[in-house]
Design a protein around this nucleic acid. Structure first.
Length: 425
RNA sequence: GUGGGCGUAGCUCAGCCGGUAGAGCUCCGGAUUGUGGUUCCGGCGGUCGUGGGUUCGAAUCCCAUCGCCCACCCCA
């Protein structure tokens, strides 16, 4: 019989890696609570319609990357490809936007049917941060500062911040027409993909990686030159606040983003260390989205962090992850010892709530159990054999170094173990 | 969806101008029946991804197919 394996692009995160993930999640929680953001946990499945209306009918995500299915009642549902739409839906549905802003965050899995490659998976995880109901550039700046604080806390260097402004929807429409006009004039210099996108998504031609087109694109009209006064002031305001906070950034006039809902501010944190998938975090302002999905007109801004990509950077970084090795391995041999081993272990756990103690009171001989004690990487073996059971003692053996051991009264165990735990964790 | 690379033991890999499979690590046992890790000795483990073709004979050559990785595309 053929063994069943995981779905393509969906990976197990093995025990050896979960400490890094937890470090990242704990850091995110701590940073966000420090800015007054509160956690939201929306469902993983939504009506397909929600993503059509938010992400955009003509985007790749909606056109060909969603896991969509009909439920038993015939309704079209989709696994979420991103979760800004869900956060906005929840806020509107519960009336959280009535007269005040909401600062929200969420961590969880997202799903996109794409060909997997380095840094890109079909199930992947995002930290999503959304500020709903705030019109000013101050909140865009706040989001960027949150990102920077998170990178600093995780000891990640080498992340660059790129910024752009896409202006209002009306400006985007006008600019799109200008850009199409320019590119059509030079259609002979466009590659095949770009010619196709001339119809579907002309803005994205701007960040094509094709080296043959760089000259052409460098001379293309720039959206930052077409901004309306309000958008320009907003963008300048953001830059002034970042400068005042000492945040380094570069304006990339060709930074556009693949989701239809962005207006004005867009930004990305990028790295060169992850191959082709260099965007670790991306986001921007979406002032029209709340109204688009049926809520009250509400300005909003947010970003998403790709956790697999951050984890990859953390793994490449210097510095050890947290230690999960047990402090002690209690091995019981003989009927009486095996029967009472858990009782002893529970007393130790009552006295030392932080102790990491593995109990081996199963079948197997002494040698076997010592081997397992060694493999557990615990620095201390607590030996409970027939002699110890009879004399109400326990033998402690140092598993590192010379392997010296001593026999002690059970009543001494707590103090000795406490010494071994020390300041660890 | 398109292109390239790669599939041999649990893991990392060698063998590939055809002659019927090997190493290191891991694992199991013994030296050491109340002591692991080190050392020594022995052992388990492979329809060579799968199916077909060529051949007296295929891990090796050819075709197809599946899987993994990387890139395009797209994005976190």
């Amino acid at each position: 019989m053929k063994a069943i394996q995981a779905i393509r692009g969906m990976k197990d995160i093995p025990p050896a890696e979960t400490p890094v993930w937890r470090e990242l999640e704990d850091a995110a929680r701590a940073v966000l609570s420090g800015y007054g953001y509160r956690e939201l946990r929306p469902p993983v499945v939504e009506r397909t319609e929600l993503f059509r209306r938010s992400v955009g009918e003509a985007t790749d995500i909606v056109e060909k990357e969603m896991y969509t299915f009909d439920d038993r009642s015939g309704e079209s549902l989709s696994l979420r490809p991103e979760c800004t739409a869900s956060c906005v839906r929840a806020a509107v549905e519960h009336g959280w936007l009535r007269g005040r802003g909401q600062r929200l965050w969420h961590i969880g899995p997202m799903f996109r049917y794409e060909r997997p490659q380095k840094g890109r998976y079909r199930q992947f995880h995002q930290l999503d941060v959304e500020a709903l109901g705030f019109p000013g550039p101050d909140v865009d700046a706040e989001l960027i500062l949150i990102g920077e604080r998170l990178w600093r806390r995780l000891r990640l260097g080498a992340l660059r911040l790129e910024l752009n402004s896409l202006g209002s929807r009306a400006i985007q429409d006008a600019f799109r027409a200008r850009l199409v006009e320019y590119l059509t004039r030079h259609a002979s210099s466009l590659d095949e993909d770009s010619r196709r996108r001339l119809d579907t998504n002309p803005l994205r031609i701007l960040d094509s990686k094709n080296p043959d087109m760089q000259d052409l694109l460098g001379a293309a009209p720039r959206i930052v030159d077409c901004l309306d006064d309000e958008s320009r002031e907003h963008f300048e305001g953001l830059q002034a606040m970042l400068e005042a906070s000492g945040v380094a950034f570069s304006v990339n006039p060709r930074l556009v983003r693949g989701l239809d809902y962005y207006t004005r501010t867009v930004f990305e944190w990028v790295t060169d260390e992850l191959g082709a998938q260099g965007a670790v975090c991306g986001g921007g302002r979406y002032d029209g989205l709340v109204a688009d999905i049926g809520g009250p007109p509400t300005p909003a801004t947010g970003f998403a962090v790709g956790l697999e990509r951050v984890v990859a950077l953390m793994q490449a970084r210097q510095g050890a992850a947290s230690d999960e090795r047990p402090h002690a391995y209690l091995l019981a041999v003989g009927e009486e010892a095996q029967r009472t081993a858990h009782s002893l272990a529970e007393q130790l756990r009552d006295a030392l709530p932080r102790v990491r103690l593995v109990v081996d009171a199963g079948p197997g001989n002494f040698k076997r159990k010592m081997k397992n004690a060694d493999r557990s990487e615990a620095p201390l073996a607590l030996i409970l054999g027939e002699d110890e059971a009879r004399e109400n003692r326990i033998t402690l053996k140092e598993m590192h170094g010379d392997g010296g051991q001593q026999s002690v009264e059970r009543s001494q165990m707590v103090e000795i173990l406490r010494g071994h735990i020390g300041s660890d964790d």
